[in-house]
Simulated scan of single mutants.
Amino acid sequence: MISIDRVDHLVLTVADVDRAMEFYEQVLGMTPVIFPDDRRAVSFGQQTIKLHAASELVAPTATHPVPGSANLCFITGGALSDVQEHLRAHDVRIEEGPVSRTGSTGPITSLYFRDPDGNLIEIGRYDEPVEE
């Protein structure tokens, strides 16, 4: 049996790496990363999202790598009202939310919007446990 510990990184195929880096840095507060071979990514916590241009794919790659095909969920510890305000300040249209969803470890409340490539981004906050 294989034992998986955590997700280390994801790869997003994007139309424009500069535009994607700016969005993830400015809107989502992630840290830009530049690798020695000039490939680029953004990081948060112990995770990295590598950004590969659709016009310059790095082998090996997914079978059908295209911009806008991802659906990502990030968890915040902050208030979703602050997230909403921040998104509006950056002219990011909220498509749905706040709505109740199920996260990996329990109920969350989420907002949905899209990055510049059309990837669906969900920002959720775990609901406070109800005291009985």
Rank of each mutant, 00 (worst) to 15 (best):
P129E: 05
G68M: 05
S81E: 12
V33D: 07
G103P: 02
N119I: 00
E25T: 15
L10N: 15
A59Y: 06
V42K: 03
R101H: 04
V27A: 07
V42S: 04
I75Q: 04
H52R: 12
Q84L: 06
H64G: 12
T105A: 10
I121R: 06
P32Q: 09
A41F: 02
S43V: 00
I4S: 13
V17P: 08
Q46D: 11
R6H: 15
Y126V: 03
R39G: 15
S104V: 01
T61P: 11
G103L: 01
P129F: 04
M1N: 07
I75K: 03
R6L: 09
V99N: 07
M21A: 13
P67Q: 10
D91L: 00
T61W: 12
P129I: 03
H52V: 14
G45R: 01
I108D: 01
Y126M: 03
A15S: 15
M1L: 05
H64K: 10
Y112T: 10
V130P: 11
T105R: 07
L57W: 12
R39T: 14
I2T: 13
Y112S: 09
S110E: 01
E132Q: 14
V130A: 14
G106L: 04
I34V: 13
E132I: 13
I2D: 11
L87E: 08
F113Y: 08
G124I: 01
R19H: 08
A59Q: 07
Y112V: 06
N119C: 05
G106D: 05
A79E: 14
I121Q: 12
Q46L: 05
T105L: 11
V99A: 08
I94N: 11
L111R: 03
R88S: 11
S43T: 04
E128I: 11
T61N: 14
R93K: 13
I2P: 11
H9W: 06
N119M: 00
Y126S: 02
R39S: 15
V27C: 06
L51Y: 02
E25W: 05
L72F: 01
I121M: 13
I2N: 09
G29E: 12
V92P: 09
E122I: 02
A89W: 00
R125Y: 05
C73N: 04
S110W: 01
R114F: 00
P98K: 04
G103F: 02
F44K: 15
Q26P: 09
I75V: 02
H9Q: 08
G68Q: 06
L87M: 02
A59N: 07
V66D: 14
Q26F: 08
I34F: 01
L12H: 12
L10G: 15
P32N: 07
Y126R: 02
